[in-house]
Amino acid sequence: MDAFISNLGLIINATLTATPPLLFAALGSCFSERSGVVNIGIEGMMTVGAFSGSVIALYTGNGWLAFLAAGIFGALVALIHAYACISCGADQTISGTAINFLAPGLAIFICRAMFDNSSDTPPIDTTAKIPKLFDGVFEVGSFGYNVFSTYAAAYLCFILVAVVWFIFYKTKFGMRLRAVGEHPKACDTLGINVFRIRYICVITSGFLAGLGGAYITLATVNQFRPALIVGQGFIAIAAVIFGKFTPQGAMKGCLLFGLCNGIKTLASTNPNIAISPNLISMIPYIVTIVALVLFVGKSHVPAASGKPYTKSK
């Protein structure tokens, strides 16, 4: 029984470590997608967030400041995407693909210029990281420590789910946001500024993706490396589609990935389990597909998704 509780604690801990970066980015993706702008560039925005977060923590020694700044840098990258897609009517998939080459390239480029041609940033001090909650309250390694004493931003992302849900379904802005993603022309007729709402949503998506990236460099590990993000932005997008483009659904998707990751971590450290770690690593992806086929089914993509909106005269 003790072993069970301790294992459970480890799984919850690993889930809490793997989920937040995905969840921040996924909430960002919700904003963008629901307003009708496909944002494949989440991945690149996360990378920029991860890099800028680690650099700012390195120089200021303030984890929270770095976290916030990472979001702003993510938002700046999103501004490029927003300008191309909304003002120029670019193909959103193409623009997003461009962002995914441009943004990580830029991050590593600047990293090399700053740190003596190294593609990794120097490690940041523990004091410059995002603080852990209840530090010192629980015995290290105990169930309570594993479940409650993780990085504060991990809890923040779950609170954000509620906030985003509230914005989406209980505010005027949220209603307009959803309407703009379904039928921009009708919104325009009613005097809603489609461009403005889409700009806000895409920039918000970059901000949240930046936070997701920074969570990795400021909490999970303590430095930026090129291979740090690879794929996570896409997983976040997958989680959003899985969750039918709702914040609460996206959370379920992210938790599914996080949980499978937790089980994977536990299984790969347990010598009694003889299954190849590579096969165990496939579980989250297979589970996602199976869950979609069996339980979730078809998801409604916002009707105006991917279509540039141009005012016709």
Binding site: C88, S95, A98
Partner: peptide
């Protein structure tokens, strides 16, 4: 020559971005 090779990714990214808005 100690130039970051990632400049290639940046160039390719800008090219694709400008193709995306080429109709402008």
């Amino acid at each position: 020559i100690n130039a970051p090779s990632e400049v290639i990714d940046i160039i390719m990214g800008v090219i694709v971005l400008f193709i995306a808005i080429s109709h402008i």
